[in-house]
């Protein structure tokens, strides 16, 4: 049974590799990403068990029933099937799927609402909108806007409101939360909490043309007091964002990090509520269906 040993070693290596190295998705820094990492671990373990069962069965069968090991006169029997065997091969997958369905349904409801422990917080609202191939972050309360980088306070529920100025993009900060699409005709809502200060990698994950590979942004999580002084600093030093300037920013291309006072929400509001392009006829309420409140 040398082959079996090889299989076990193979999976040991894979598991060791998974556990040992710091894959971003499995190295969460906030409650949302943490939930997802747990779900992923549960599914990986379940699936490794399933795969090992199949592999072991296959290996045993191949060793036991290969022609070279058998009497040349051996005639394999005709077997139609067996009720009990079939109950097992239907029942076991159903149990596994039922278990994973429960995990999936619970966790998807959890990550679609405000993170646990932060439900009562008034969230900090940041509009994140994409254009080819940049991210624009508007802070309506603080009345500032940044390009390709965003600062957030730690241990505070941040509500990103996502939309696009053109192509569909997907807002993703692997260590803090899963993805959500940013589209031009509706606003999506994503709640994020960073529990550790630090710099995080964020990007658009949905292919949107020539500049896609570089369509990244930086997330910096700071303690609340440092965040406040950062805001104050920008309010005092940055240039105001005019409509002409913003039109210029929307041109396809790449930009570095930029900072402005004022936001483009004043002259080019997000597609939500009364500004939704599909807000006609009977379906007024539908556009807010993704809203967590």
């Amino acid at each position: 049974m040398k082959l079996k040993g090889v299989y076990i070693a193979f999976f040991a290596i894979i598991s060791g590799f998974l556990a040992g190295c710091e894959l971003l998705v499995l190295d969460p820094k906030g409650p949302q990403a943490d939930k997802l990492a747990n779900v992923i671990w549960i599914s990986i373990i379940t699936m490794i068990v399933v795969t090992i069962v199949v592999l072991v069965m296959l290996t045993i069968i191949l060793f036991k029933y290969r022609a070279s090991k058998q009497d040349p006169d051996y005639k394999p029997p005709h077997i139609e099937g067996n009720k009990y065997v079939e109950i097992i091969i239907v029942g076991v997958p159903i149990l596994i799927v039922a278990f994973l369905s429960v995990v999936s349904v619970i966790s998807v409801h959890q990550v679609e609402t405000a993170p646990e422990g932060y439900e009562t917080d008034e969230p900090l609202v940041i509009y994140a909108s994409s254009s080819n191939w940049k991210w624009h972050f508007s802070y309506p309360e603080q009345d500032i806007e940044t390009v390709n980088y965003v600062f957030i306070p730690t241990n505070q529920n941040v509500e990103f409101r996502l939309y696009s100025h053109g192509t569909i993009s997907s807002f993703w900060i692997p260590q803090l939360a899963g993805q959500k699409y940013a589209m031009s005709d509706m606003t999506n809502y994503l709640n994020i909490v960073a529990e550790e200060p630090g710099e995080y990698f964020g990007r658009n994950a949905n292919f949107n043309g020539e500049g896609f590979a570089e369509n990244e942004f930086n997330v910096t999580a700071l303690p609340a007091d440092e965040f406040d002084s950062w805001i104050e600093d920008i309010q005092n030093t940055a240039e105001p964002l005019t409509e002409e300037k913003f039109e210029e920013l929307l041109e396809p291309g790449h930009l570095g990090h930029m900072t402005f006072t004022g936001t483009h929400q004043d002259f080019m509001p997000a597609p939500e509520g009364e500004n939704s392009p599909h807000n006609h006829g009977k379906s007024d309420s539908e556009d807010d269906s993704g809203h967590p409140h």
């Binding site: 939930k35 966790s107 993805q179």
Partner: peptide, 9 residues
């Protein structure tokens, strides 16, 4: 698994 797909998608 819909929730985990947010990370794989």
């Amino acid at each position: 698994m819909a929730s985990a797909d947010y990370q794989y998608h």
